[in-house]
Design a protein around this nucleic acid. Structure first.
Length: 286
DNA sequence: AATTGTACCTGTCAGC
DNA sequence: TGCTGACAGGTACAAT
């Protein structure tokens, strides 16, 4: 489900509701979703802690947990990865739990944060703040797409020495953090690059277009509060609207917004892949 | 070392 | 209706 724009939207909607709140209670309903401590220890470790702020790294949402009254002690971080269908929804206390609820945090104002995940792939990891290497999906994370370290030169050098197809390379979180299946297809479309092109075969102009397209499509995704194709909702349970602006994802056989020819679907890197066979050619010119 | 396939889960939808 | 198979926003791990 959530790629960078969705996780960022969740972060922004939850931050004002959770920041400076103290965790009053914690219940775990799916033990396998918890990493970093035992299911028995988890409620004790998080209860009584204050949520200092929410951060994001790639597709990870990081809840920073300070211990009130003890500023010497290093904070903990509860790191969520929602994978395909995870949701984090804040609301009033005492509301009934949905069927696939992984965990519930109760706050000192009586409200609750529900971690709901139909497919049960989502995980949360309790670690000392800063020890990101202890979260397997964070240990080899590439640069944030909006950080100064994600430069055109870095991107160019990285693509040049990679073997696989460009789509597979963009989905690799060690290249750049936060792209998933939807925004990868949209960025490739905007840059007019076929998803099966070899990454190392892109010329400088193509790399430059792709670099720009990645930043633009992620920025727009955030501006439109994420893409709700099926399960995604923000921290208040509200859908995003970027699905209305998708050019290619999920639109096989529909008209290309640019040339009007039918869009195609294929499978690349094991993922459904949407593109325009006319605007995104595999061969050099035609 | 890096790339590909498969597993992890549940739900939905198209086709028969 | 109900069955079957394909597919779904992601990652980990085994096999190559």
């Amino acid at each position: 489900m959530p790629e960078l724009p969705e996780v960022e939207t969740i972060r922004r909607t939850l931050e004002p509701l959770l920041a400076d709140r103290t965790i009053a209670g914690a219940e775990l309903y799916l033990a396998k979703a918890l990493r970093g401590c035992t299911p028995e220890a988890w409620p004790c470790l998080v209860t009584g802690r204050k949520i200092a702020r929410l951060e994001r790294r790639g597709k990870h949402l990081i809840m920073v947990l300070a211990k009130p009254g003890n500023h010497e002690e290093a904070p903990l971080a509860l790191v969520f990865h929602l994978r395909m269908t995870g949701q984090l929804i804040h609301g009033p206390g005492g509301r009934p739990r949905e069927r696939h609820t992984t965990a519930v945090l109760t706050l000192d104002d009586g409200t609750e944060l529900h971690f709901i995940d139909t497919r049960k792939f989502g995980v949360m990891n309790l670690i000392p703040y800063g020890r990101w290497d202890e979260v397997s999906s964070m240990s080899r994370l590439g640069p944030e797409p909006f950080s100064p370290s994600f430069t055109l030169t870095y991107f160019q050098n990285t693509l040049r020495r990679r073997k696989g197809k460009i789509k597979a390379v963009l989905l690799d979180q060690s290249v750049v953090a936060g792209l998933g299946n939807i925004y990868t297809d949209e960025a490739l479309y905007r840059a007019r690059i076929h998803p099966e092109r070899m990454a190392s075969s892109l010329d400088f102009e193509e790399v430059r277009r792709l670099y720009q397209a990645i930043k633009e499509v992620l920025q727009e995704g955030i501006a439109y509060r994420g893409t709700s194709v099926r399960d995604y909702a923000d921290g208040l349970g509200q859908p995003g609207s970027f699905q209305e602006r998708l050019a290619v994802y999920g639109r096989a056989k529909q008209a290309c917004p640019s040339c009007g020819q039918p869009l195609a679907r294929t499978v690349v890197a094991g993922r459904g892949t949407y593109f325009c066979p006319v605007c995104q050619r595999l061969e050099k010119e035609g």
